[in-house]
């Protein structure tokens, strides 16, 4: 960042970073949340980048597109002229791109790739791979054109909670292997960027035991590494039905009769069992909410998308993330 840089549009005060790293246990919907956040931050006519680094092609899947190449391309627009571009960062291509910056490789680079040498280099030193991936994301986040930011914000669909600390703690891994040279410098730059207020790591969870446990562990891990943690995003929440937590069969029978529905034993008992299971589930959810609240981080709750994850669903989540419902 240079002091003379012009900032086109202030950051959203609720989401003050430029790089939003979205992690969470597998199955919590972190890709969906990352996409919704990229859309949310594009509102107001901004351009955002949604990046993934694990070769899963989850973004393409979400937007119903074919596999994304290693290239930034538009995947969605907003009504007010904003746009979301997507990028699937490939470690091999990122390494070649990086080497090309320092050394002119040309055809030799392609031969190396064909021979698997790049795959080999990124395999033997996983930290090298991570520094290339995070380095690319940093480059996109800080990129300027005509003294303006190319991206208002970058959202990274990051590795899951179990690996996020290691993924973002790039210096520790590479410092062990590379004691001098450009990779060391590069990893130090990336590490400083990831620890600056430019970066914010958000953890997506469900109100289930394992995801909450991993959320707590990941935040402790990131805190220990000095990497800024942003929000806890509780995905898949449901409306608080039966808030006074009481229901009995006689009452149900009366209610069913009043609504003109069947009042036979099976229907009443069935509904009663479903309501009781719901209450058991809710009690557990409440205790997990308390556990999350004790983390003392801003919490955003997102609803279950009952009609599946489509564009309308993403817009709903985006509005919830911005609190503009």
């Amino acid at each position: 960042m240079r002091a003379n840089e012009q900032v086109p549009g202030q950051v959203n005060p609720a989401w003050p970073a430029r790089l939003h790293v979205v992690t969470g246990k597998g199955g919590t919907g972190k890709t969906t949340v990352a996409a919704a956040l990229a859309l949310a931050l594009a509102a107001g006519g901004h351009r955002t980048l949604l990046a993934e680094v694990e070769g899963r092609q989850g973004i393409a899947e979400l937007f119903g597109l074919g596999p994304l190449p290693y290239e930034e391309r538009k995947v969605a627009g907003t009504a007010d002229g904003g746009e979301v571009r997507a990028l699937a960062v490939d470690p091999e291509l990122a390494l070649l791109e990086y080497l090309d910056m320092f050394y002119r490789l040309g055809a030799a680079g392609r031969a190396l790739r064909k021979f698997g040498a790049i795959d080999f280099a990124t395999t033997i030193a996983p930290g090298l791979r991570d520094v290339l991936l995070t380095g690319k994301v940093k480059e996109a986040t800080t990129r300027t054109a005509e003294r303006r930011r190319v991206y208002h914000a970058v959202v990274l669909d990051a590795p899951p909670t179990g690996r996020i600390g290691r993924f973002l703690n790039v210096t520790a891994e590479t410092a062990r292997l590379a004691k001098v040279g450009p990779i060391k410098t590069q990893s130090e730059n990336v590490a400083a960027f990831l620890r600056s207020p430019m970066t914010s790591v958000h953890v997506v969870t469900l109100l289930e035991e394992m995801p909450v446990q991993e959320t707590v562990d990941a935040i402790a891990d990131l805190d220990g590494l000095g990497i800024p943690v942003g929000k806890v995003i509780v995905n898949g929440t449901r409306p608080p039905l039966l808030a006074d937590a009481k229901v009995n069969q006689a009452e149900l029978r009366r209610g069913l009769a009043a609504a003109g529905l069947p009042t036979d034993r099976a229907t009443v008992a069935g509904l009663y069992d479903e309501a009781k299971a719901h209450l058991t589930r809710r009690e557990l959810e409440e205790s997990l909410r308390v556990e999350l609240a004790e983390l003392d981080r801003p919490i955003v709750e997102l609803p279950t998308l009952t009609s599946g994850v489509d564009r309308a669903g993403l817009d709903t989540l985006a509005a919830d993330l911005l609190g503009t419902h």
Partner: peptide, 18 residues
Amino acid sequence: ASLGMFSRVVQKVLGAQL
């Protein structure tokens, strides 16, 4: 030739210690 060069590049980028 590429491998020879690759090895040199690795040496430059990562350092001889590696």
